[in-house]
Design a protein around this nucleic acid. Structure first.
Lengths: 234, 234
DNA sequence: TCAAATATTGAACGCCGTGTAGTTTTCATA
DNA sequence: TATGAAAACTACACGGCGTTCAATATTTGA
């Protein structure tokens, strides 16, 4: 209830909570998702596995927290890369976003799996929380990129979309952020998302690297083609 | 060594081996990837877990076998769908391939995860095996689709690719199957693969369904756009 | 029929997540 | 400063997991 500085006890608790995540991330990076076990974390911290239960109600809860962190870190990276280019260069912003997406994924394959894979059995994306927030940011960011290209859009015969075709929360977010954008732009943004996701997912899961020597080059070509097909000239 | 009909004992062994896979697939379909446990399979078959070790050297070996089966089943489906259309309708063949890909994935999400994602906790993808064969078939199939569009290709300034840019096995396969195709077509095929993969992966892992009400429609639009961008008219 | 080959068991080992009961530590207040 | 409650932590138990291995049961061929 109080907004004062945390007591020593609260501070220690926060520190320990953070350390658990830090250790879990280290285990994740070094041994893959399966290396995250409460017992391993406890061992590393010279605690008992049971003691962790006063910080996270369950292992899945911890992994959810990790996933949120990862997602936020990813979105931070992509948005920063995008915003390094001015609004007058929408193509560069799109390419930067995509390249940052892939770079992050390649640098943090385990994190990518946490976010876009299926880390926890029976884990349902919670209604509220940091992960959905990051997902919304990602979606909105992509829609922004598409919005910059929307006036130039000529994707053949336009399909007709309604706001009802999308999640209400997402629809509201887009409507407030981009009042002039029709719902079809959201559909296009989701497709763009898929297009950026595809090659990266294949690569992270080892299906691309065994076929092509330079996945980065393929991805760059795909991004350029995407920008071109959106009507953005570089 | 002998090519005669198997002895009764050999037959039983084959039957049991097949039954193990069948039970594992049932568990997979019904309880998700984590439901595949040797103990559960053994329980279902009224055996001991240890007894399974005379059929599969390890749990991962069994999962590898399952993955191969799944991959083969997927490729069978896509090729059949594609071949339902004549060579004179390359656009239809491409669309059919893609739609079959998504249909299979949506119908067998667990199988899709086995093949393209995080299969089972603790499972490490082996370096070589039967799965690569299915992967080659898939790649070759896609390259065939791209080959049909290659003469029409005008993807802006052509990038220069060498056969060295790809896995030697894949390169050889393509060179014998499509002697006139330049290596750049393989790069395009891989990109097409990624494009078809992206939305499906997002959907199977639940990231798309929470945002859009009708992922199938999005995917169809993406496929049409893909065909269009390849120069294929429907 | 009998011995060799094969199939299966059952118990063990060391992991794991998860509870619970009891013990130690910390800290605000009397 | 002493005290009692809250918080942190340990110890242990339970069941599940993959895996190994000696012992046993079953089938097979001679």
């Amino acid at each position: 209830m109080t907004n004062t500085t945390p007591t020593r006890r609260q501070q220690l608790r926060l520190d320990t909570t953070a350390e658990i995540k830090r250790v879990a991330l280290a285990l994740l990076a070094e041994g893959g998702p399966d290396a995250i076990s409460l017992r391993a974390i406890a061992r590393e911290m010279r605690m008992t596995a049971g003691a962790l239960y006063s910080y996270y109600g369950t292992r899945d809860e911890l992994i959810t927290a990790l996933t949120s962190d990862m997602y936020t870190s990813l979105v931070d990276k992509t948005e920063a890369a995008r915003d390094a280019h001015p609004a007058e260069a929408p193509a560069a912003r799109l390419l930067a976003w995509g390249e940052a997406f892939r770079s992050w994924a390649v640098a943090n394959p385990a994190g990518f799996r946490l976010v876009y894979g299926d880390p926890v059995r029976g884990y349902k994306v919670p209604e509220v929380g940091a992960a959905p927030e990051a997902a919304s940011r990602a979606c909105a960011g992509l829609t922004g990129l598409v919005a910059a290209a929307w006036p130039l859009q000529d994707q053949g015969p336009q399909e007709e979309y309604t706001w009802d075709d999308f999640d209400p929360g997402l629809a509201d977010l887009i409507k407030t952020k981009f009042p002039d954008l029709p719902p079809g732009a959201v559909a296009l943004a989701l497709r763009v998302w898929g297009r950026m996701h595809g090659l990266v997912a294949l690569e992270v899961y080892g299906h691309l690297g065994s076929q092509a020597k330079d996945p980065a080059r393929l991805y760059r070509a795909e991004l350029r083609d995407l920008a071109r097909s959106l009507g953005l000239k570089d």
